[in-house]
Design a protein around this nucleic acid. Structure first.
Lengths: 125, 125
DNA sequence: CTTTGTGTATTGATTCTATAATACACATAT
DNA sequence: ATATGTGTATTATAGAATCAATACACAAAG
């Protein structure tokens, strides 16, 4: 369910946080739905259970997850607006545009590059 | 010249690294050209000179910058291929596409969103 | 040679990240 | 009641990452 890479400079707990946000925003995780247990994830990814618990706790503080003692963590019924797909996407796209500008690309060139990359993905399917 | 945000989880020296890479790849910084002095940048951004020196050193190890004691840091005459604009852009776009997929977007929706964001930029000019 | 401009080696303090081992609080099913 | 399933608080440790302060080495201009 998650793609975790301990070699990245981004901390593991933050990788989990980011992906849960996107999975909820994208509807892969529905309100009320249960998340994988910390022990299960810990075993699959060979990481410490507390690292996952930390990510879950931060997501709960963010209003994205709901905790009920003794039961699995669930997706909050009414996630706050700041994690809507549209907002997340906007944030990502702004970064992408800023990078492209620093690379000296025109708008048209950026769009062309995105098309190219999307088509290359298709070839590998 | 740089846009630095100490509040981000991304370390400052890494923010500098990323931006220098893009500025060289994009041609805003030409081979042989001098970079801003560490003390100047330190004062402008209110950060420690050593933080900038660290970024410069890492970029030198990467083959992007050349150092000559007592003189300003300069852009290397023959930067390695892995920092070409095309490579940088590909890396960024792949991240963007992966995020969009997790958000449940189709290719067409991603492209539409990029157009929308680019147009919104224009309005603010 | 002195002044002023480079970058940086060294050291230290602090914070962050991840791990580990327990022990606990609660829910659910048997 | 018991066994098994949740997540979590606690404490401790280890290592890495980050930033800061000082002192130094070199270059160029006066």
């Amino acid at each position: 369910m998650f793609i975790l890479n301990p070699a990245l400079p981004t901390p593991i707990y933050r990788q989990i946080q980011d992906q849960v946000r996107r999975l909820i925003a994208g509807g892969q995780l529905l309100p009320g739905g249960a998340l994988p247990s910390v022990r299960e994830l810990a075993e699959i990814h060979a990481i410490n259970p507390m690292t996952i618990s930390k990510a879950y706790s931060l997501l709960e503080a963010e209003g994205l997850l709901a905790r009920q003692r003794g039961k699995p963590m669930t997706v909050a019924e009414h996630p706050p607006p700041h994690i809507l797909a549209s907002h997340q996407l906007q944030t990502i796209l702004r970064d992408t545009i800023a990078a492209a500008r620093q690379l000296g690309l025109s708008d048209a060139e950026l769009i062309a590059a995105l098309h190219a990359e999307l088509n290359q993905d298709k070839d590998h399917e």
